[in-house]
Design a protein around this nucleic acid. Structure first.
Length: 580
RNA sequence: GGUGCGUUAGCGAAGUUGGUUAUCGUGCCUCCCUGUCACGGAGGAGAUCACGGGUUCGAGUCCCGUACGCACCGCCA
């Protein structure tokens, strides 16, 4: 061994000990005949001091060299309160260079000026920095807690295949060509969905897995093409059982990692979430719900509003208190452009101060309509009312985005808070304009609400399911559902999706057949571990919590994946690259 | 697939209405310094201004295209 202690553990009580440390040179301060070296490893930084007699030992040592040092722990003349080891230093007696290092392309420190693309290209250097290293360690802690809690409750961890079968309905699959079966492909799993349900049929009544999932879709700040899910499934259980288990896991994680003891898990139905917050993943660290003011303007003299209502649209309003002096004309122009991203035609606003209205629609709206609005919204002096008149989903989404944006900008969000909310009873289907048919909102194995069973094939638009999400601070943390365990019901859902018998047999045959051999009622969830660790560690960038992440265009700047392969490899797979 | 922003020494940035030798900080190298911990001081090296085309007497600067990065919309059962 090159070391008998780490760089993070020596304290005042160790003074006098002869120790051997090894690590990276984080900083070298040469004061002439005395040289200080900050030695860094995963556990921390310890100052090594080379006096006049020993400074020659580190004459050639530069930043990021890997060295081994022998010396004696001593008390510093003046302590450095910024370091855990700041009270002591190691007076070096010997030093061995284990590895030299070129000048690094970035400064390796908590505060680095390197931009993200450079950090990704040299990710192994980035990982030496606390902000990344600490998140990887936290992620390990989360996984450890999850395994412990679930094992205590008789869940068992089962690994499911990475080489699996492509499924229609849902995200684009990553495909892996088969060598032995010419022209055939494996697919990487979007989630272990079918396998875990088959495990239920196999009698493994409480399953979990920390499972890698793959989706070939465009990325976002909180989305990577491969990600990890804490995947769970329970038999002889319903929503209440799985909610209780998830809440127990979350409580353990937040207690042990953040010391938070007072989590609550309110529930909001999907339709109410959309109605009040314009999102199926509302940030409830602040409330500020939207109001439906459609009826006030059904016969409005302001034709933009009345025409919208006449065409079946809605008018949604959002109030921000004490905001009249915080939101400038310029800001409203910006917000007006902002809602267009969400296909809204525009954003109307009114300021209310001392009984007087001003704002973009002040002149267009008659006094009695403004009075009625004021009464319905219970306006106080200083209030700003923002309104979107549009198709229901556009108005809700656009104003919901405004709620989130201004909630942030007006400082309504308590950054130390953790606000969970279960969103329940998602729609069973959504209509795909692209495909011209109803598709599963969740996945085709999701059970409908009992009261909506008769709508399965006849009234898709108003059929709701037993699917749920757990939302934390505006992030979708997990999705899950009670599954269909009855083949007749399953057949109906496939029917509603417009799948032919042929397609069903071809794509889901083995799965459907399994349900004919005794399937227990079951339900489950998949928890996105990256998003959880993001929130726990206070970042809004998923790349920070992934060891080796991909860029927004699914490229690895470090390894240059994806990349071309040799002709031989293509030949083995009977593949040919199409020329454009 | 779409929209917006960005690309200038190793790194991070500035660069005015288009005009002589492209500026600053940091890192790097050399020298000085015995108590620093973002050490300090002196000096030095380091740039085909992302790539391709265009406008112009003249382009880092204006225009078009491409590539890459970031964020967002679509997409993500």
């Amino acid at each position: 061994m090159n070391r008998d202690h780490t760089c993070g553990e020596l304290r005042k009580t160790d003074v006098g000990k002869k120790v051997r440390l090894a690590g990276w040179v984080a900083k070298r301060r040469n004061l002439g005949s005395i040289v200080f070296i900050d030695l860094r490893d995963r556990y921390g930084i310890t100052q090594i001091t080379f006096d006049e007699a020993h400074s020659q030992l580190v004459k050639d040592v530069r930043n990021e060299y890997v060295i081994e040092v022998r010396g004696v722990v001593s008390l510093k003349e003046t302590a450095n309160p910024k370091l855990e080891t700041g009270e002591i230093e190691v007076i070096a007696e010997d030093c061995k260079i284990l590895s030299s290092a070129k000048t690094t392309p970035m400064i390796i420190a908590d505060e680095t000026d390197a931009l993200e693309d450079l950090r990704l290209k040299y990710r192994y250097l980035d990982i030496r920095r606390n902000p990344i290293k600490d998140k990887l360690i936290m992620r390990d802690k989360v996984a450890t807690i999850v395994r412990r809690v679930l094992h205590e409750d008789d869940f068992i961890e089962v690994e499911t295949p990475i080489l699996s079968k492509s499924t229609p309905e849902g995200a684009r699959d990553y495909l892996v060509p088969s060598r032995l079966y010419k022209g055939k492909f494996y697919a990487l799993p979007q989630s272990p969905q079918q396998y875990k349900q088959l495990l239920m049929i196999g009698g493994m009544d409480r399953y979990f897995q920390i499972a890698r999932c793959f989706r070939d879709e465009d990325l976002r700040a909180d989305r990577q093409p491969e990600f990890t899910q804490i995947d769970m499934e329970m038999s002889f259980a319903d929503e209440e059982d799985i909610f209780a288990e998830v809440e127990k896991v979350m409580k353990a994680i937040f207690k042990e990692i953040k010391g938070v003891d007072d989590l609550s898990f309110p529930r909001v139905k999907y339709v109410d979430a959309m109605d009040k917050y314009g999102s199926d993943k509302p940030d409830l660290r602040f409330d500020n719900p939207m109001c439906n003011v459609t009826e006030l303007f059904r016969n409005s003299a302001f034709s933009v509003f009345s025409n919208c209502v006449a065409e079946g649209g809605v008018i949604k309003a959002l109030v921000f208190h004490n905001a009249t002096d915080k939101l400038s004309r310029k800001k409203f122009d910006e917000l007006n452009e902002f809602v267009k991203i969400y296909k809204a035609k525009g954003l109307a606003y009114l300021k209310y101060d001392n009984g007087e209205f001003t704002g973009s629609v002040n002149n267009a709206l008659p006094a009695e309509e403004k009075k009625a609005l004021s009464e319905q919204l219970k306006l106080n002096s200083g209030d700003v009312v923002l309104m979107v008149a549009d198709k229901k989903n556009i108005a809700e989404t656009a104003l919901g985005a405004i709620r989130k944006k201004l909630g942030e900008e007006l400082g309504l969000i308590d950054k130390d808070k953790f606000s969970f909310v279960w969103i329940t009873e998602f729609p069973m289907y959504e209509y795909s304009e692209e495909e011209g048919r109803w598709v599963s909102a969740h996945h085709p194995f999701t059970a409908p609400r009992d009261e909506d069973v008769d709508k399965l094939t006849t009234d898709q638009a108003n059929c709701y399911s037993r699917a749920y999400d757990l939302v934390l601070n505006g992030y979708e943390l997990l999705s899950g559902s009670v599954r269909i365990h009855d083949s007749q019901m399953q057949a109906k859902v496939f029917d509603a999706l417009g799948l032919s018998k042929e397609q069903i047999k071809n794509k889901f045959g083995f799965f459907i057949e399994a349900f004919e051999y005794g399937a227990p009622p079951h339900c489950g969830v998949g928890i996105g571990i990256e998003r959880l660790v993001m929130i726990l560690s206070g970042t809004d960038n998923i790349k920070d919590v992934v060891a080796f992440p991909k860029t927004a265009s699914a490229y690895c700047l470090m390894s240059d994946a994806p990349n071309t392969v040799d002709q031989d490899q293509l030949d083995f797979l009977s593949l040919q690259i199409k020329k454009d």
